[in-house]
């Protein structure tokens, strides 16, 4: 993938759009992402009843979204909670270790694992701790625990004092999101709420491909956090940051994402490919894919073209693509 936008995102977009269509088309998992999707949600020690309720609500919402909206197998969502329910374990360091060790053993490199930390975090300089029941786990300990995992990994630390986790856990091919972007940000965060909302908010889908990538969720959640403070007229005490380059430096949601940003390709739902038993419709689908590829190619060449030439070609291609897409929708009854 080159250029500002992901070619694969364009390529996937139409298939997802079609996946929702009825009639002659069927949606099947795409071969490219045939691995399993797993999640580990850790709700740490809350400290106070009000936080216990709030953190549990975030956990429940997130788990429900993963299962119900994104189709995670219930067994693929591991929950370590302050007050565990059936099938969950208690949020101690020992249980967190056990859960990660189990996932490490069972996940393959084609799988993807999302780890979300909800609760409180504290940090003194580089030494940050996610608060658990009993002894906490330091950044270094988390790093060591995650190192053997073969699956594609994304870690979202939604807590206060989470910033040291950015550099601490950053690794090539891994996405790390922290709710804060400085050592000084130590107040309780609203980022977890924003992140959960971003996963279901259609506004988060910036490229309107019907899917929400981790980058889109992060960008939208960051916006919701900013609005939260702006609408109250108070100074923001948290600014989320993302690293998907492995350098641990991170970038804000307002920064331009690098070419081939892994976070832009990190989708929570399973990719699907639409095919049709209707030969004419299949021809249209093939044509749509070809046009989409041409659009991607044109966008990659944009820097070498005059604006006028780009606009002319882009408009022509988009016109064709729009016509084909309309015809597909018409034939499929959508």
């Amino acid at each position: 993938m080159r250029g500002r936008m992901s070619g694969r995102r364009f390529g996937l977009a139409w298939t997802i759009a079609l996946a929702m269509m009825a009639g002659t088309m069927i949606a099947a998992p795409a071969a490219a992402q045939s691995g399993g999707r797993y999640a580990l949600i850790v709700q740490g020690a809350s400290g106070e009843p009000q936080y216990a309720t709030q953190h549990r609500a975030w956990l429940d919402s997130l788990a429900a979204i993963l299962r119900d909206r994104f189709g995670y197998e219930p067994s693929a969502v591991t929950i370590v909670a302050e007050q565990p329910r059936d099938g969950e374990t208690r949020a101690t360091a020992e249980n967190v270790r056990a859960a990660i060790v189990r996932l490490t053993a069972s996940l393959a490199s084609s799988d993807q694992l999302l780890i979300v930390l909800i609760g409180h975090g504290t940090s003194q300089g580089q030494d940050a701790k996610f608060n658990l029941i009993g002894p906490d786990l330091s950044v270094a300990e988390w790093k060591a625990l995650l190192a053997p995992i073969k699956a594609t990994l994304a870690v979202v630390d939604t807590t206060s004092g989470s910033y040291p986790y950015l550099a601490g856990l950053a690794a090539p091919g891994r996405v790390v999101i922290t709710a804060t972007n400085s050592f000084a940000q130590q107040f309780h965060t609203v980022f977890p709420d924003a992140f959960v909302r971003a996963l279901t908010d259609t506004d988060a889908d910036q490229d309107k491909d019907g899917r929400i990538s981790l980058l889109e969720a992060f960008t939208h959640a960051s916006r919701l956090v900013r609005e939260y403070y702006e609408q109250r007229g108070t100074m923001a005490t948290e600014t989320a940051v993302i690293d998907d380059t492995g350098d641990g430096k991170g970038r804000l949601a307002t920064a331009e994402s690098p070419s081939g940003s892994p976070a832009a390709l990190w989708y929570l739902d399973a990719p699907k490919v639409a095919t049709s038993s209707d030969p004419e419709l299949q021809t249209l689908l093939t044509r749509q894919q070809a046009l989409t590829n041409q659009v991607d190619e044109l966008r990659r060449r944009r820097a070498t073209m005059t604006e006028e030439a780009f606009t002319r070609e882009f408009e022509a291609l988009l016109g064709d693509l729009a016509e084909v897409s309309r015809e597909i929708r018409r034939r499929s009854g959508n």
Binding site: K208, T292, R329
Partner: peptide
């Protein structure tokens, strides 16, 4: 459409 080429409403 430059931001969202597959956006049906825009198309």
């Amino acid at each position: 459409l430059q931001d969202a080429p597959t956006y049906a409403r825009a198309q």
